[in-house]
Design a protein around this nucleic acid. Structure first.
Lengths: 91, 91
DNA sequence: CTTGTATTTAGATAGTTATCAAAATATCTA
DNA sequence: TAGATATTTTGATAACTATCTAAATACAAG
């Protein structure tokens, strides 16, 4: 889980998708139009983001609406904190 | 720069190295002994971490001492905040 | 300057990832 | 059901990454 999160964030296109979704949900097609890559490529990125728990997908008729899964951000913050802050052990 | 940071964090071995360095600086050899990979492989990881600004290297005689570059963590926190908090212009 | 230790670099390879075009699937509307 | 639109899956490929061994470099002590 930790790994899939960091891996998902490692790609700049996926980070841009996340930033775009901050402004609200969007369909796969709408998102695809805002990026230079092919729709199939974006679909792959959506999958990675979904597997990492960063976005959720909901089908609305012919469309699939993607939105941020904000509840994961807390966990991400926790992970970052554990990576970078704990001075548990003596130095 | 953003990209090299996220890429550096995407590998679990490198995250472990960072966690190890939280307990204090260590030489390349000391670090290499704590990981199953070959020394050359670890050296590669050190380079990636160094390029991302996450660690610093200082030669001490025959040894090279690696330590966390804590000043980058602030920037990382800022980046995470920008990625995940509602739209606002760079601060 | 040679020898021993520490570390990095070079060269090679296997596994992973981003990408695209084409085919397949899902859903709506007529 | 047939046709149109939206999205995903498949199959292929090029680029990238982690990994190793072996060779090269850096330094200290004789």
């Amino acid at each position: 889980m930790t790994d899939s999160l960091f891996k998902a964030l490692a790609d700049p296109t996926r980070r841009e998708v996340l930033k775009r979704l901050q402004r609200g949900p969007a369909t796969a097609g709408e998102l695809a139009e805002e990026f230079p890559q092919a729709k199939a490529t974006l679909s792959h990125h959506f999958n990675v983001l979904k597997a990492a728990g960063l976005v959720r997908a909901e089908r609305m008729g012919q469309h699939v609406v993607y939105s941020l899964n904000t509840s994961v951000f807390e966990e991400l913050a926790r992970m970052m904190a554990e990576l970078f802050k704990p001075e548990r052990k003596a130095k």
